[in-house]
């Protein structure tokens, strides 16, 4: 409905791989409704966000009312209902990060990307989000996640390096481990 341009209505909302994942999840749980969250993850990984047509398709696959699926989809903060930038940057500003310079980090990113908190860069490469839950990296504060991968102990230079790495598409496998 919302995003259906001409011809979009005929295109199946979900790819075969996504449908297969949804059906596998459905088998995993005693109740089909338990497969809503895994199914929505599968959809978001394919489409980048949750379209109304995709919610309908999930409801259909799981034998649920579409309203139930939408009720769930809108409750959780990590599902997107609109297309965001290609990469999502989230800066934790909870207490531990706040004490160690999260506000400065966010301001630096705003300047570096030329967007305000909540905005998406003109080229659509980055969306910057500064209102997130504590991301469980208080020991490496300040931190940010890019596409749900954590980067910790960041100063301006380190943040720039991460942005550069993301822009260049270099592999970003090296995880930053919480210090034990």
């Amino acid at each position: 409905m919302a995003d259906s341009g001409p011809g979009a209505a005929e295109a199946p909302p979900l790819g075969r791989e996504t449908l297969a994942r949804i059906r596998r999840s459905k088998q995993l749980y005693p109740w089909a409704s338990s497969a809503i969250l895994p199914s929505l993850w599968a959809v978001q990984e394919e489409l980048g966000y949750l379209t109304p047509a995709a919610l309908l398709a999930v409801a259909e696959e799981l034998g649920l009312e579409p309203s139930e699926v939408e009720a769930v989809a809108t409750f959780y903060s990590m599902y997107f209902r609109h297309r965001a930038g290609e990469h999502l940057i989230q800066v934790c500003r909870n207490v531990s990060c706040g004490l160690r310079g999260a506000d400065e980090l966010l301001r630096h990113l705003e300047r570096a990307l030329g967007v305000e908190d909540g905005g998406t860069t003109e080229d659509g490469a980055f969306t910057l989000e500064g209102t997130v839950e504590c991301l469980g990296a208080c020991g490496g504060a300040p931190m940010m996640q890019v596409d749900r991968i954590s980067y910790e102990n960041l100063d301006a230079a380190a943040a720039d390096a991460v942005l550069e790495q993301v822009r260049s598409g270099a592999p970003r496998g090296r995880r930053s481990r919480a210090r034990a």
Partner: peptide, 19 residues
């Protein structure tokens, strides 16, 4: 029938129908 459900959360919670 489940036509009306809760959507969103916290202070932004509302009741509505699917789309």
């Amino acid at each position: 029938e489940r036509e009306i459900v809760l959507q969103e959360r916290g202070v932004h919670t509302l009741v509505d129908t699917f789309e």
